[in-house]
């Protein structure tokens, strides 16, 4: 995964609360291999019922939406759908916990801003797109002419900027993991599944 520090692109608003991962990608698409691209599955049912849906008219990099975005199932495919569609950052007051981890593991920024800021942005954007600038390093953004600060876990911020990969990162601790394993199983032999 490659890192990034700025987005210069377009933003649209998705005026909905609790956009869960079942909506972001309906389960029936999840048997597809990733290399075919998941962008077409993003919010599939909502978009196919509404030709004028904002995501049928624009190809934004930034999505503005309401609280509890990405709640529900742990399916990382919801993040693949957003990323493959071209989205690099989602601004919302809150996110599903597992979704946030999945997002950061795929280079997608879950940026937290206040409800009042979201209200104002959604008002301003309406059904159209607008210019968006996001600076991951400073935690500042300018969307539709409005400047705002967003918050993101500092660990995630570094991970997104540097494109760190957890498996590579963990490799340096291999010896400690082996030592821990030995001690744990010696102290708590019941932790090993019984096999006859």
């Amino acid at each position: 995964m490659s890192g990034w520090s700025q987005i210069k692109g377009r933003a649209v608003a998705l005026d909905a609360r609790n956009v869960d991962t079942d909506q972001l990608i309906p389960a029936r698409f999840m048997s597809q291999p990733r290399d075919q691209g998941y962008g077409g599955f993003l919010l599939h049912d909502v978009r196919s019922d509404d030709a004028g849906h904002v995501l049928n008219r624009y190809a934004p990099q930034v999505l503005i939406t309401r609280e509890n975005f990405g709640s529900g199932s742990s399916r990382e495919a919801a993040v693949y759908a957003l990323v493959d569609f071209g989205i690099k950052a989602v601004f919302a007051p809150s996110f599903g916990d597992i979704f946030s981890s999945n997002a950061v593991n795929n280079g997608l920024l879950p940026a937290r801003v206040t409800e009042a800021e979201i209200d104002a942005l959604i008002d301003r954007l309406g059904d159209d797109d607008a210019a968006a600038f996001v600076d991951l390093g400073t935690g500042e953004a300018e969307i539709a002419g409005t400047k705002l600060q967003f918050s993101v876990d500092p660990v995630w911020q570094q991970k997104l900027i540097n494109g760190w990969d957890d498996i590579d990162m963990t490799a340096q601790y291999a010896a400690q993991i082996t030592e821990f394993r030995g001690k744990r199983l010696a102290a708590h032999p019941w932790a090993m599944p019984t096999t006859d």
């Binding site: 990382e76 981890s101 498996i167 963990t170």
Partner: peptide, 20 residues
């Protein structure tokens, strides 16, 4: 706790998981 596919790969590879 539930994890995503990247974390599944990490656990398969290392039997560990990064969490706050």
């Amino acid at each position: 706790f539930g994890v995503g596919a990247t974390e599944v790969a990490h656990i398969l590879a290392t039997q560990t998981v990064w969490q706050k």
